[in-house]
Simulated assay, not measured.
Amino acid sequence: MKKFSPKYIFLTLIAVFALSSCEDVIEVDTPTGDRRLIIDALIRIDTASAITEMRVVVGETNGFFETIPPANLQQITISNLDNPLPDAVVFNETEPGVYVKSLQTELLMQDRWLLQIDFEDQFYLAEASFVAAPQIDQLEQGDGFVFDDDDQEIEVTFTDIAGEDNFYIFDFGFGEFLATEDTFYQDQQFVFSWFYDDPFEVGTELPISILGADQEFYNYMNQLIEQSEDDLNPFQTPTLTVRGNFINATDIDNDETVDNVENEQNFALGYFALVQQNTSTIVIEDL
Rank of each mutant, 00 (worst) to 15 (best):
F172Q: 09
D231Y: 09
E216M: 03
T241D: 09
F177H: 02
M221E: 06
D253R: 02
E205T: 02
V242E: 09
E153Q: 13
E256N: 01
S193P: 05
Q188A: 14
F158K: 03
F158Y: 06
F170T: 14
I161N: 12
V191T: 15
A128K: 03
Q227D: 07
R243C: 04
E176P: 05
N263E: 02
E201N: 14
I169H: 03
F184N: 15
I169E: 03
S193I: 05
F246P: 03
V261Y: 03
L232M: 12
D230C: 02
G163R: 09
F174C: 00
Q223H: 01
D150E: 11
Y220A: 02
T157Q: 14
D231K: 09
Q135V: 12
E127P: 01
D259G: 05
D148G: 03
F217L: 09
S129I: 00
Y168T: 10
E205S: 11
F246A: 03
A249V: 00
G142P: 09
Q135S: 11
A249P: 00
Q186K: 15
T250R: 00
T183W: 05
I161S: 12
E201P: 08
G173S: 11
S209C: 12
F170W: 14
A179E: 08
Q189R: 13
P199V: 00
G175F: 06
D148C: 07
D165G: 08
T183C: 03
S228L: 05
Q186R: 14
E153F: 03
P207A: 11
V242R: 10
V242W: 10
F167E: 11
T257K: 07
